[in-house]
Simulated scan of single mutants.
Amino acid sequence: MADQNDPRLERLFERLQTVDTPINAQGVTNAIWVVWLEHDNPQVVERMHSGMDAMRRGNHFLALIIFDDLVARVPDYAEAWNKRATVHFLMGNYPDSLRDIERTLELEPRHFGALEGRGLIFGEMGLLEEELQAYEAALEVNPHLPGARRKLEALRGESERI
């Protein structure tokens, strides 16, 4: 099984808690992303790459169409929901992005990308407490997220000044 249910993930997440250098942490983090992107159906993998390519090119409308199709075809594939959440975020559709993040987390509660993305959305919405909690949750799963760590430290500093 290649997706969020892959048995390799358990070992990778355990390793993520014990790595001792940023380079090793990045290697484990990348390995997790690779597994999350895998799927037993090659057509699904091809569509994922097409959607990601459309996002990279800034064609959010096409990416959204592709990820809409993927979540309809393989509704238990967490990474399809996560990618669609990312497109919604890029388009400023925060409520839709949050709904897709929730589905991602139902399927893969350890999805640190979705947790960190939730923090970004709450930040855009001005929801300080929710933003703080989202970054804390992301760092609990993956303590090696420099962006989430910086945001959390800044938010804690901000809340101490209030």
Rank of each mutant, 00 (worst) to 15 (best):
W36E: 04
F89K: 01
M91L: 13
G123Y: 00
A72T: 14
Q17I: 13
L12F: 06
D20P: 06
I101L: 04
K151P: 02
E160D: 08
V44F: 06
E38S: 06
L145F: 02
A148C: 04
G117P: 00
E158Q: 12
E102N: 10
I65R: 07
A54P: 01
D100K: 01
L70I: 07
E102M: 10
D40W: 05
W33E: 11
A54E: 03
E140V: 12
L64H: 08
L105D: 00
I66N: 05
D69W: 09
G113K: 03
L62W: 05
M1H: 07
D76P: 03
G119Q: 02
H39W: 05
A154Y: 04
A114I: 08
I32G: 06
H39I: 10
L120Y: 13
R11S: 15
Q4C: 14
W81K: 02
V35N: 00
R11A: 15
P22D: 10
R150V: 15
A148T: 05
T18I: 15
V71K: 00
H88C: 03
A78V: 09
I121G: 00
V44W: 02
G157D: 05
L64M: 13
L64R: 09
E102R: 07
R84Q: 06
D96C: 07
E160W: 10
T18V: 15
S159G: 04
D6P: 01
A72C: 12
Q43W: 11
V44Y: 02
P143R: 11
P7I: 13
L139G: 04
H111K: 06
E129V: 13
N82K: 07
L62F: 08
L90M: 09
E153N: 10
E153L: 15
R150F: 15
D53M: 14
F67C: 06
P146I: 13
L90D: 05
V28Y: 01
D100F: 05
V71E: 01
R118G: 03
L128R: 04
A31I: 12
P95F: 08
P7M: 12
I162W: 12
M48G: 02
E116K: 08
L62V: 13
L70V: 07
H144I: 10
R47S: 11
Y77T: 06
S50T: 14
A148P: 01
M55K: 03
A134N: 00
L115P: 00
A2G: 07
V71L: 04
Q26T: 13
I65G: 09
I66K: 02
E14V: 14
A85I: 03
L145A: 03
R156Q: 12
Y94P: 00
R73C: 15
H144A: 10
G126D: 01
G157R: 06
R47T: 10
V74Q: 09
I32W: 04
N5Y: 11
E108M: 15
I65K: 07
W81D: 03
R73N: 14
G126S: 01
L145Y: 01
R56D: 13
E106C: 08
V28P: 00
S50Y: 13
N5V: 12
A78C: 07
V34I: 14
D53K: 14
